[in-house]
Amino acid sequence: MATSKSAKFDIKTYGGFKAITMLCLLVLYAPLVVVTIYSFNASVSLTNWEGISLRWYVDVFTGPESEKFKIAALNSFVIAIIAATVSTMIATLAATAMIRGGKFKLRTVSFGLISLPLMVPEIVTAVATLIFFNSIGFDRGLMTIILAHTAFCIPFAYLPISARMQGVEDTYEQAALDLYATKRQAFTKILVPLMMPGIISGFILAFIVSLDDFIITNFVKGAGVETLPTAIFGSVKQGMKPNIMAISTMLLGVSVLMVTISYFVSKSDNTK
């Protein structure tokens, strides 16, 4: 940090920008921090603070709604793991073609297709997917959620993977080819290991996107099938209860943990 004396003449510094940044962080974090704190509230009421307690966490696991949340959590994780795994594999192959496949006619079209889920408003994707499954007579359930999430997660997995691949110089693969490796060997023995940080971040981001998705899931889930977000939404609609805050805090913790892992993995540069 510049001292006040030098800051006076620093062309880069604008008064107030730091304060706004702090305000920005406050706005971003205040709701999360407040919910985390109140999830430990001993009171049955939402807002009266009656001391620290884990009762709402216990309630999540043993209370009247615990069975519903357990099934929803299991569904959420199964869907997220399958969708993230498949979309990461698809994205890795696609990135190899896009970044290591030279120039070709369908390149721009392919990129447009891959990023389409990011450009179309999510609710439109949700409506379209629902209509599609309905039109081909595909019964809604876990499977429809997994399929919809897989497609929706592809761009999220693709972006860090392709960014990473652009960062890996192609001389490593050339050196492998020069040393008698086939292209397949150059891919599996050299490119994929070097891509690992990008692939892991891609997987984690896809996992979080799937785990967090509400809108698409809400449309394509069948009756009776719930994921954590739809279960939470259902409960909130009936009125906010403290156990929602406990479950939200846990889910929040999972997301923050995974993003933190992703951050450190992508920061570790194994080409240096």
Partner: peptide, 26 residues
């Protein structure tokens, strides 16, 4: 024919020994 690259292109994820052994294994 083998090449010594301008930036060496040593495989960063392999040990020195495995780097040198790579061509022979392939």
């Amino acid at each position: 024919v083998n090449t010594v690259f301008q930036n060496y292109a040593l495989f960063p994820h392999l040990t020195i020994l495995d780097n040198v052994a790579f061509g022979l294994e392939m």
